[in-house]
Structure formats: structure tokens, C-alpha cells
Design a protein around this nucleic acid. Sequence first.
DNA 1: CTAACTGCAAACGGTTTGCACCTGT
DNA 2: ACAGGTGCAAACCGTTTGCAGTTAG
Lengths: 127, 127
Amino acid sequence: MERLTKNRERVKEILCNSDHPLTAYDISKECPEMSLTTIYRALDYLVRNGHVKSFTFNEYTYFLPSERHEDFFLCTSCGRFFQLEHCFASSYEQNLREKGMVPKDHLILITGFCSECNEKLHLQTQM
Amino acid sequence: MERLTKNRERVKEILCNSDHPLTAYDISKECPEMSLTTIYRALDYLVRNGHVKSFTFNEYTYFLPSERHEDFFLCTSCGRFFQLEHCFASSYEQNLREKGMVPKDHLILITGFCSECNEKLHLQTQM
DNA sequence: CTAACTGCAAACGGTTTGCACCTGT
DNA sequence: ACAGGTGCAAACCGTTTGCAGTTAG
């Protein structure tokens, strides 16, 4: 029978304490004493048991607590995630249910420049 | 100077004729005479020159004509994409611009079961 | 003629797996 | 004692790159 070990609890804790999705590599930087293999297996366990969920974007798989919703703005310049305040997905989902589909989850990712990076880039082009 | 060769035109044509995003591998099945390397390089050329755009989901990079919008329902049972009729991204984007962010692109992906797969799964559980 | 295109094989990088060892019950 | 957890090294697989040969303007 599978167990929620110290390592696995620690991985979950790191994800819960972070306000944005993390990659396995991000987690390994927080606890270098744990091998990457163990982190991947911990994440696999946590996903299988419903503690966390994941999505893949630009080569990387990101993990986040499953109760968190997955609507983000990603700044392609500094790589930071910003959570979107309102979730409009329910309107989509209503639409789909009317057609017989059964939506389970969603990923909304808007990319662009955050205000800080946008300012920096503006200053550069003015020089 | 880079050229829009026969191969590259063919790749673009395949993407334009498809009603859903395709992976490099999907394309290679349509034209097995072209090497995977050439397909990847063609896709790279087409993205750089604004003919097509891409997004990554679950290990695979999907390509689609750049004028197409990227709002899909993905059936996790049969793997088919269904285009969503209405694009609600503008509601998010308005919100972001008010905070000084500059949205450029978006990916909206709702996952679940399509009506056919849902029916099949229903029948199975009834037996 | 020459710059760009192509295919092969090898490299790359994030993720997974086989195996031997360790740990908790 | 034994099922399950862990770390290392190797495998895996989608994608990229180096290189030598080919093609098109």
C-alpha cells in the first residue's frame, strides 16, 4: 500500500506554499537533498491521488495543488505567472454541456508582457 | 534568402486543410516521403514567418494556421480536438490591459469527454 | 556559383524505468 | 520479513543540430 512519505509531503507543501505552478526542477532547487527521480515519483503519486494536478507548456510540466484553478497570465519575458482574477470558463463549459460534452478541467493561459517587462522594453526602444 | 519551398508549402497546406492542430508526427504520416527533420525545419520556418503558430500540450507541440484561434475542447478519451465556437479571451485581455499588462496570445483548452466517448463509457458502466 | 534545402545520424533535455539497496511497519 | 520508497545510471522520446550531399536561382 502506497504511503504519503516525508518526501511526498514535502513536495506537496512546496506546491501549496507557492502562488504559481512549479516544475520538477523548481522543486528540486528547493530541496536539493531529494533526487529528481524521487521528486518525479512523488509528483506522480500526488497526481494519482488527487493532491495535485499538472499541465504542460513549452517543454515543461507544471504542477499545482488540485484545488487551485488553472487560469494564468504568463509573461514571456521574465517567465513569471500571474493568476487571472476571474474565471470565465464556466460560460464555455455551459456551452459544451448543451452539446453533450462533459468538461472536466480547463487550462487558460494568456501570454504577453507583464507591466514591468513592458516598461523596460519601452525604455530600451526609446534609447 | 529563405524560400517557401515545395516541402514547406506542403506542410502549410496540410495544416490549413486540417480542422484541428497537428503534431510534426501527424504531418509526417500525411507525407512519409518527407523526413521528420525537414518537417520540423519547415514548421520552424512557417512559425518564424508568421504562417503558422504552435502550442505545447502533454508532451507534444501542436501547429495550426496563425489566423485560426486557439480555443479547444480536447476529449481525453479519443484525443480529438473540437474548436470552441466563442472566444472569451477578450474578456480576460481587457482586464489585463487595465493593469498595464500586454497580452499577445492565448491558449484555452478545456478537457473532458466528447459526447460519443461519454456515451460509450456510460454503456460500459451499465454492463 | 553559391546560398539555401535536405536527410542521416548523433546529440539534447526533460522525464521514465530497471535495479540494487534502504526503510518503516 | 517484506512491501514500498529511494538513488543512480541508463533508457526513452520528441525535438534539435552537425555535417555532407543536393538543389534552385
